[in-house]
Design a protein around this nucleic acid. Structure first.
Length: 321
DNA sequence: CACTTGACCTGTCCGC
DNA sequence: TGCGGACAGGTCAAGT
């Protein structure tokens, strides 16, 4: 089975949060199955007992971390890392005419609304033509709700994880405690960003943007895109940025992320043709990511792909100095 | 101390 | 067609 992947950075996680918010609030958990222990390392009989019977109360996000709050003072903190997905299915099983796999006509799924909400959150889910039966081999955790609907945590590469904890312990959680400012917070300003940057550092700005303690939620796509938008060479040392650069960069990060959320996030679709799935940021608005060799929208020179901070990095050598 | 690299995984793509 | 190897990216541990 081939399907698209979401690249879960802040806009994708926010898109998922909104979709789940519409789909699972107030649903009561009837059962939990952990198929791969490492995806939910602390899971045990006591946690299972605590989860069963609880209701989904709220869904929050901190950086790339999704937090499902329950009505029992606990929450599930979920990090999707790179290939994690949360897929809601209102009923179990697949569509009758899905039985022969991935026919091009699989749009049947969209026609009857809520039976499958793949496309509702994340954009990384299979397009309508690729509805797959769940669980599948990437399924790690299954939440069964009392109304017979399900939430699947799928994660091909097993890097993502679930954590069960008291809501009151969130603030002291080591991962959350270290997160830098949230670019989408109302009180986020370029000064906030500046104060969080290691201003004397010789590290490349791209590496620093990927550091979640500097700014929360930026990953490889939005690092590249916001550096392009700000006209800054990804390899430039932070110490060589001036006030104008920092200001432009802060604005670019916010702008790219807002645009991406409006587009439903980013989906890597190099495996399938698009058939109406969400997550169209890369198609509609990305300027450099995955566009090596294509002409720069600003100057026409070919976009290059190099390696910065050990990551594939896309940029325009002419526009980014 | 500052910074970089490798490990964790699995599936896909590319070249032979 | 099949196989091996490079590659993808978020985070943290280990290395320089």
């Amino acid at each position: 089975m081939r399907y698209t992947f979401m690249m879960p950075e802040l806009p994708e996680v926010e898109t998922i949060r909104r979709g789940l918010n519409a789909a699972i609030i107030n649903k009561q958990i009837a059962d939990v199955q952990v198929l791969v222990q490492r995806s939910f390392p602390t899971f045990n009989a006591a946690i299972k007992e605590s989860l069963i019977g609880s209701k989904i109360h709220d869904i929050k996000r901190q950086g790339k971390l999704l937090i499902i709050c329950l009505n029992n003072k606990h929450c599930l903190a979920i990090h999707l890392r790179m290939t994690g997905q949360l897929v809601f299915r209102a009923t179990s099983g697949t569509k009758p005419n899905d039985a022969n796999g991935k026919s091009e006509s699989g749009n049947t799924d969209n026609s009857d609304g809520n039976d499958c909400c793949d496309n509702s959150f994340g954009g990384g889910y299979p397009s309508a033509s690729l509805v797959r039966q769940l669980p599948d081999k990437s399924t790690r955790v299954i939440f069964d709700f009392l109304d017979k609907s399900h939430l699947f945590f799928n994660d091909q590469r097993k890097f993502g994880y679930l954590k069960y904890m008291l809501i009151s312990d969130l603030a002291s959680d080591e991962f959350i405690r270290r997160l830098g400012p949230e670019p989408l917070d109302d009180n986020f300003t370029w000064e906030t960003f500046r104060d969080s940057l290691p201003l004397a550092s010789k590290r490349p700005i791209k590496a620093v943007l990927l550091d979640q303690s500097v700014i929360a939620g930026v990953g490889n796509i939005y690092a590249d895109e916001s550096l392009f938008a700000a006209g800054i060479n990804p390899a430039r040392a932070v110490a060589l940025l001036n006030k104008k650069d920092i200001k432009r960069l802060a604005e670019s990060i916010v702008c790219c992320m807002r645009q991406s959320i409006a587009d439903g996030g980013s989906t890597m679709r190099n495996y399938v043709d698009g058939l109406g799935q969400r997550g169209e940021y890369l198609d509609l608005h990305a300027q450099v990511f995955n566009r090596a060799g294509s002409p720069c929208a600003r100057c026409g020179r070919a976009i290059e792909k190099t390696r910065v901070a050990g990551r594939g990095t896309h940029w325009c050598p002419n526009c980014q100095r």
